[in-house]
Design a binder for these strands. Structure first.
Length: 247
DNA sequence: CACCAGGCCGTGC
DNA sequence: GCACGGCATGGT
């Protein structure tokens, strides 16, 4: 099945990637500028191998999901091959704090402004996303001037609690959810996105406005448990499917 | 002008 | 426990 690199990189899992045209996508990650045109190119790079979760058998997962019901089959066939990224904990946390009551285009803009203002240049005029330490120099009014709005105090709370992010790996999913939600601005939806897209917790099932629509319309009597053991990937397929169909 | 976007917080009941 | 208003900003 055809890899849908555009949906994977620009579809709301990550806000790090830029479309350079001609099928090329670039991002500043791991203190470097990465440029790729296909998933296959990532296999030879240890960082990207891990980032793109290349050790997981997505072909089998996709087939299992598509076989579950006709809606999921439609979603898988229309979206194509996508994955669940394995992003940096800190970057994912701030990214999804920025995402609340916001849209992907504007989230990406805020991500880039934070990088250019508080990150550091890695070459070619491209900037890394700021570390918690780099962001600790920002005041609430500084952040509001950048355009983050009411999320400014949430970002500052996350800066103070950044060490917490290194304590989640050994916890159960529910305990990790609870601990993440001790950071202001992180509720169930944002916490599950962070756990899926940064901690490889495939049992997460984020309920944003798009997924509420899908569940109400197509799964009125179902819970996320219905999609077990592919909650997160099923959710990502349904999210991409409905968003591309209705927007 | 209104309503929406990968929601959450604080308050009231 | 659940319902509801408020919240910054930019797009439609």
């Amino acid at each position: 099945m055809q890899e849908n690199l555009r949906e994977l990189l620009l579809g709301g899992q990550s806000f790090s990637w830029k479309d350079e045209g001609d099928g090329v996508f670039s991002a500043v990650l791991n203190e470097k500028i990465y440029r790729i045109k296909s998933i296959e190119e990532a296999a030879s790079d240890p960082f990207l191998y891990d980032y793109f979760d290349l050790g997981y058998d997505y072909a089998s997962a996709r087939e299992a999901i598509a076989s579950k019901d006709s809606i999921l089959r439609e979603a898988v066939e229309s979206v194509g091959a996508i994955r669940l990224l394995h992003q940096d904990h800190w970057i994912a946390t701030i990214s999804f704090i920025l995402s609340q009551n916001n849209n992907i285009k504007r989230i990406t803009g805020l991500y880039n402004r934070l990088s250019e203002r508080y990150g550091h240049e890695v070459g070619e005029g491209r900037y890394s996303f700021p570390t918690a330490d780099e962001l600790s120099g920002a005041s609430e009014s500084d952040l509001r001037e950048l355009g983050v709005g009411f999320r400014a105090p949430f970002i500052l709370d996350a800066v103070g609690k950044a060490p917490l992010l290194d304590t989640l790996d050994t916890l159960s999913f529910e305990d990790a959810m609870d601990k993440l939600q001790t950071i202001k601005g992180i509720g169930p939806k944002v916490a599950s996105c962070i756990l899926i897209f940064s901690y490889q917790r495939r049992e997460g099932f984020p309920m944003d406005v798009w997924m509420k629509k899908v569940m109400k319309e197509y799964y009125p009597d179902k819970t996320p448990q219905y999609f077990h053991p592919y909650e997160a990937l099923s959710q990502q397929y349904l999210f991409s499917w409905i968003r591309n169909r209705d927007s």
